[in-house]
Design a protein around this nucleic acid. Structure first.
Ligand SMILES: [Mn+2]
Ligand SMILES: [Mn+2]
Ligand SMILES: [Zn+2]
Ligand SMILES: [Zn+2]
Lengths: 136, 136
DNA sequence: TCGCGCGATTAGACAAAGTCCAGATTGGAC
DNA sequence: GTCCAATCTGGACTTTGTCTAATCGCGCGA
């Protein structure tokens, strides 16, 4: 899959998101890298050449992408949220020292024996995070 | 197990923590409730009668408890960290709407098929979080 | 072409969680 | 009682994220 800026418009429309210049840039930052980025990192990525997207728009847009199911939130670091262009079910490996976050394919991992949910509750997602650190 | 204030001093010493009045109060807030509390909630719990512990001390003490392995951090909400007096391996159920956080016993849950760790890395912990919401 | 309407964007004020520091307090050793 | 190191404290500061009121800009109809 080639995530060019041109492809972004179609991707956005496919998720009922009106493609604007800023939204295309932000989507491109996430999808071309295929990495987990914080709002700050998205902001930096989008404004490298010259400032063209405001902080408010970055936050608004990431929230919109999240609501529309275009990206996923990953909560591993108490100080910032990461946004993940990979919305297929998968898990995460978090290197505590460096802050590096990488994917663990869900295919090979099996989770069993979870208790039944409380009544009237429905699962929104299951997050499995393997926290690792450099050997001491 | 009865988590009285008197027992707290011994518990703290057992983790190489010098028991002070503030530390005993904070430990008592966490262990007598056996609940997941945010720093703010600890602060409120400790200062109900009259103000007796500062914000700086609450944060410093929670960090100290964490380093000494007396409590565990639970990162499920992007806006605040929860502190968990239960340090035995277990998982979490997070009700997204209400913010309610509860334990899932690790005994019955089985996780298999995790890939090998990168070289020179050691597991610090595995967090499994089941995110649920009230049926729509 | 002109201008209208409305969704999108913006600057900057604001809020909340958490950190930091320099000075004050405390309590045990002597 | 004095001293000292550990601890605690108020408050300034930082960072992440939110909010708002004003502005922008694009499509459309006259
Ligand atoms: Mn541009
Ligand atoms: Mn008291
Ligand atoms: Zn991911
Ligand atoms: Zn727990």
């Amino acid at each position: 899959m080639n995530y060019t800026r041109d492809n972004m418009a179609g991707l956005l429309r496919g998720h009922e998101i009106n493609p604007t210049h800023q939204r295309i840039e932000i989507a491109h930052a996430l999808f071309s890298r295929q990495e987990h980025l914080s709002a700050d990192q998205v902001m930096a990525a989008v404004n490298t050449r010259h400032s063209e997207t405001s902080k408010a728009t970055v936050y608004n847009t990431l929230k919109l992408f999240l609501e529309k199911g275009l990206v996923r939130e990953v909560i591993v670091d108490p100080s910032k949220v990461f946004y993940d262009p990979n919305t297929t079910p998968h898990h995460h490996l978090y290197e505590v020292d460096s802050g590096k976050l990488s994917d663990i394919d869900a295919g090979s991992v099996q989770i069993s024996g979870l208790p039944p949910l409380p009544d009237g509750m429905v699962t929104e997602g299951i997050d499995l995070i393997v926290r690792v650190r450099r050997q001491p």
